[in-house]
Design a binder for these strands. Structure first.
Lengths: 199, 199
DNA sequence: ACCGCTCATTAACCTAGGTTAACGCTGACC
DNA sequence: GGTCAGCGTTAACCTAGGTTAATGAGCGGT
């Protein structure tokens, strides 16, 4: 059975009708590390589901830095919400942070299914609710934690992602430069050694 | 006509049935500046609508700083998404940033209306979609802009809020200390004077 | 085996912002 | 009218992180 279906039905709390429509619209794509799924600033009303690997969503600034908005690993849906609504364009790019495979689905199909079946509308609503919940947490981390705390939390919370992406990308997620991240790691290691000596 | 109703029906793209249920569940509350609507860490499945004034949503850290997650002014809905789901607790506090009046609505009513009427489910979904869109923008600002840029963007984008809340709260939103914000303002003013002399 | 690439680390220097403290202003409350 | 508390500003000092550059390790391509 499709992993995506299972996740959506858990969201809806119900079985989802017309799944065959999803099945036939679904496109599978395999990506090498560094390969781009979509670029910032384009109309792209598509929702993705990660089958394997890690996708990073990045904001590129005018002066060439790339900050990592979020990672999506196996079992996660993602999309640029700004790029979903008619006339909207994506607000970030999506790039494979390691070799990955994804499934894609045109958003208008989900929208139609939502209008047709309350179960689907509910699944979508719960999906956005969950998205809002996650964004709240990310916003809180960016507002209230120091760079070092954000790094520590990231590797504790997402070890399965941390071990597969480069330190450079982790730095982009923590919102420091790779140089600063290297210093932070050295600082933590030093402190751990001190702690051991203190016993 | 209720301003909240108008906004919700625009989201749904349709008229909303059973509005009388909302009408009779709605509670109005007036708040003096600094008065608290709800505290962090409590079960609070309530959605608010701002009739007048400005509400600030704040994260309190263990060492006593208060960072401003967001402001909500007239015409905005808000809630702690984490506090909406059964068993969840609010992830921030809501406090009046100036004298304000709000309407409140138990979330379970909206949830029920959503299960009962597709128009409501759609309104809720669109509401969360909009919330996600806003959170995406906030996250991007925190990730890609400097403190000074965040301040400039805030006063340009929300002048009607900036003029009514304290600099202290603006600093909390921009994610700097009040002292640093004062320096930033001085820096900007100095540059503007230089610009004028350069003509 | 060699080249060339990207990545992680380290050092040196610089800057923005945090911290603490002092000062003046305003507005609420006796 | 006097007192007090909170706010915004400024100054002095400190620290975390940005910037630039050099170094070395790993690795795919030839």
């Amino acid at each position: 059975m499709s992993a995506a279906k299972e996740i959506l039905e858990r969201l809806a709390g119900d079985s989802l009708p017309d799944w065959h429509l999803v099945e036939s619209a679904l496109r599978r794509k395999t990506l090498a590390s560094g390969e781009c799924l979509f670029l910032v600033g384009v109309a792209h009303p598509v929702v993705y589901f990660v089958k394997s690997g890690v996708i990073k969503m990045v904001y590129e600034t005018y002066d060439g830095d790339a900050w990592v908005k979020a990672f999506a690993a196996e079992g996660r849906f993602f999309a640029s919400i700004a790029g979903l609504s008619p006339g909207g364009v994506t607000s970030f790019s999506a790039v494979a942070a390691c070799s990955a495979s994804v499934e894609s689905l045109p958003y208008h199909l989900l929208d139609q299914l939502g209008d047709k079946h309350p179960q689907w509308q509910r699944a979508l609503r719960k999906g956005f609710e969950l998205y809002g919940f996650r964004k709240e947490a990310r916003e809180r981390d960016l507002l209230t934690l120091s760079a070092e705390e954000r790094y520590q939390r990231f590797i504790e919370e997402y070890p399965h992602i941390a071990e597969r992406v480069t330190d450079r990308d982790i730095a982009g997620y923590v919102r420091v430069t790779p140089v600063a991240l290297s210093r932070i790691k050295a600082r933590i290691k030093l402190r751990q050694m001190d702690d051991r000596l203190d016993i």
